[in-house]
């Protein structure tokens, strides 16, 4: 009889606000200046200047473990990492930002939102950025896993705050980049928890003072060229097994729970993570 509470209207405005202020403001100023100059030169506008056609994109995410589709809370431990350790998954949330489409003419389109995916919530698998995307040939797609240091501002994103996505201040603050959790069959053949959480990496200097290392990575995806002449979809797929190999095999017995303060584990995720995502344009 009663409608459920409408889902909370999460804001991503902070993200754009910060970006436009810090990066795009000078560009906008330049453009405004250029327009102003142009309008001084010529009073009449040229009605014959062609406006390039633009289209919309939909961004989707899906998830696999090697050749298996990824299912939450699957019975037993159906997945196997590169070290032959069997595991299952009870949680996967991650953050992608600065997805950028590189046009063959040298221009780029940076999608106007971050993507916070929670595989327990299918509504977070699909996003519709508002950017108009000009027609033409694109050479590649690039993205940032997590937030870069400019975006990784503690407390700046309401949606992420309410999701307890923050990374502790004593580990450098900002936000988590990923939470991948489940259980694995450990070296004594019993079920043990693992929590692959990724964010800012902390180490200590000679005086035992903390040093915080920005731990995001940016990847230009191979085989990601495409043509745009209509609305289209960008389908990202994450193979979670790629977190645990290439170049270095990850041992759940070594890095199971409690890895957030473990510097080497954080850096290893960064090193291994470059090939976790692939993209197909449809």
């Amino acid at each position: 009889m009663f409608l459920p509470l409408q889902s909370i209207n999460f804001k991503t405005t902070n993200y754009k606000k910060m970006k436009s202020f810090k990066i795009k403001y000078p560009i906008v100023l330049l453009m405004a200046g250029a327009l102003f100059l142009t309008s001084c030169d010529k009073d009449d506008e040229d009605p014959l200047t062609p406006v390039p056609a633009t289209y919309k994109t939909t961004v989707t995410f899906n998830h696999v473990s090697g050749s298996n589709a990824l299912t939450l809370n699957a019975p037993n431990t159906p997945y196997t990492n590169a070290m032959g350790q069997q595991y299952n998954v009870s949680k996967l949330r991650y953050l992608i930002s600065d997805v950028t489409l590189h046009h063959s003419n040298g221009t780029t389109v940076e999608l106007d939102q971050y993507f916070f995916v929670d595989i327990s919530k299918p509504e977070t698998f699909t996003f519709s950025p508002s950017n108009p995307i000009p027609t033409g040939s694109y050479t590649s797609v690039s993205y940032t896993f997590g937030f870069d240091s400019e975006d990784n501002v503690s407390g700046a994103y309401a949606e992420l705050n309410a999701a307890n996505w923050n990374w502790p201040a004593m580990l450098g603050g900002g936000y988590h980049f990923m939470q991948l959790e489940g259980t694995f069959i450990d070296s004594s053949n019993s079920s043990s928890p693992f929590a692959t959480h990724m964010g800012t990496a902390r180490k200590f200097d000679a005086n035992n003072d903390p040093i915080y290392e920005d731990n995001h990575f940016t990847v230009t995806l191979p085989n990601s060229s495409f043509e745009v002449n209509s609305d289209f979809k960008l389908e990202f797929t994450m193979d979670i097994n790629e977190w645990y190999t290439n170049p270095t095999n990850w041992d759940f017995n070594q890095y199971g729970a409690g890895i957030m303060p473990v510097y080497d584990a954080q850096i290893l995720l960064n090193t291994n993570g470059k090939d976790v995502l692939t993209v197909v344009k449809k």
Binding site: S154, N161, A163, N164, N166, P168, A169, L171, G258
Partner: peptide, 23 residues
């Protein structure tokens, strides 16, 4: 409360930017 090697209460109960103290 925040220390991963001590309380690690944050993952469930939030942090200084989540005054709900739950998710």
């Amino acid at each position: 409360f925040s220390d991963q090697e001590k309380g690690d209460c944050e993952h469930c109960h939030g942090n200084s930017y989540n005054p709900l103290w739950t998710e």
